[in-house]
């Protein structure tokens, strides 16, 4: 109660909005920390969608059929869309998307560690849809209720589209599992490589996740990293059985007492390494993003010049 008395009207309104599970909207007053955290999280999320186009995009020209090519193209295009919805949300907080892109390219902002792994065969496309998009769905569904309005609304749009991503991946894998021995081996190999990095997508364990408590208090985040990881494992194990693949974790067993699967500890030193820039593809991903930005510069400039010229001509006509 004494705390309450020391708060300004603005702060009180903000806390009441959060408490009542209402949404904070762009022009509302908000603590600087909330704004910063929100921009950082949304930007990091947007960057992940954009960088995430690369590992799968590499397979568009090598897809085994026209149908698979069309599906993959649509999926990668969706990821571009997700990035843009999120940059749009970040701009409502006063961020500027060109500036955010610059921060990404200069390594000042991060993106999900998962996209720093290579896609070695076409089975990887299926496994990414199934596991990586599957983990993303687990993370993102609760974010639809995030306290920042534009972020929650972007997440609703994104979640609607993710379901197609996961299903096309799983269907692709089912098709391959019904194929030759070699195809089945490709699927198993891809599952073995992507399983642990997928579990790391939920972030470090709760006792080593310093920013989580504040994000939970602000209702930016609704569940802890470990809760979401457990949910993902519980969802995925029966899907792996139906597919006929083995998840590479000897500790993975049903625990009837807990009503959950027990599973092994991911190698957290690997996550730290990949996040800090030392994954198999970090340099490649950023170099590619930088190249796209630089090679697109003349197009942006030409379009702006064209628009300015047209506006000028329009004004002359009106005069």
């Amino acid at each position: 109660m004494t705390m309450e008395a020391e708060l300004s009207d603005d702060e009180r309104t903000f806390h009441r909005t959060i408490e009542r599970d209402q949404r904070v909207e762009p022009r509302d007053w908000m603590p600087e920390g909330y704004r910063k955290t929100m921009i950082r999280q949304i930007a990091q999320h947007a960057h992940s969608e954009i960088i995430g186009m690369q590992p799968e995009g590499e397979w568009i020209t090598r897809a085994p059929s026209l149908r698979r090519k069309a599906i993959l193209l649509a999926k990668v295009q969706d990821e571009a869309g997700h990035g843009l919805y999120l940059y749009s949300a970040a701009e409502t907080l006063g961020a500027d998307r060109a500036d955010l892109t610059r921060r990404l390219i200069e390594g000042r902002q991060k993106y999900s560690s998962i996209f720093n792994y290579p896609t070695l065969s076409f089975a990887d496309v299926g496994v990414i849809g199934w596991l990586v998009d599957g983990a993303a769905i687990c993370n993102q569904v609760p974010l639809c209720r995030s306290s920042y309005g534009p972020y929650g609304r972007a997440m609703i749009r994104i979640c609607k589209e993710e379901s197609f991503h996961q299903r096309q991946g799983y269907e692709l894998l089912m098709t391959m599992m019904g194929g030759t021995t070699q195809q089945r081996e490709m699927v198993q190999d891809a599952v073995t490589r992507w399983w642990w990095p997928s579990l790391m997508m939920f972030g470090p364990p709760d006792d080593r996740s310093p920013n989580s408590a504040q994000s939970m208090a602000w209702k930016i985040k609704r569940h802890s990293n470990d809760e979401l990881r457990q949910r993902f494992v519980d969802m995925t194990v029966p899907q792996a059985e139906a597919l006929g693949v083995t998840l590479p974790d000897p500790a993975l067993t049903w625990n009837a007492g807990r009503g959950h699967y027990d599973f092994g500890e991911p190698d957290w030193s690997e996550l730290t390494r990949v996040i800090s820039g030392d994954g198999p593809c970090n340099a490649l991903r950023i170099a590619r993003r930088r190249q796209a930005d630089e090679e697109g510069a003349w197009v942006r400039e030409a379009a702006a010049a064209h628009a300015a010229k047209r506006q000028h001509a329009h004004r002359e006509e009106a005069a």
Binding site: G81, S88, A89, A303, A307
Partner: peptide, 22 residues
């Protein structure tokens, strides 16, 4: 539904079509 960046109104309409009505 959201925002986007474009050079002019025509481009904004096309981008909006691609981004928000796939």
């Amino acid at each position: 539904v959201g925002s986007l960046r474009a050079a002019d109104h025509d481009m904004a309409l096309h981008h909006a079509r691609d981004l928000y009505t796939r």
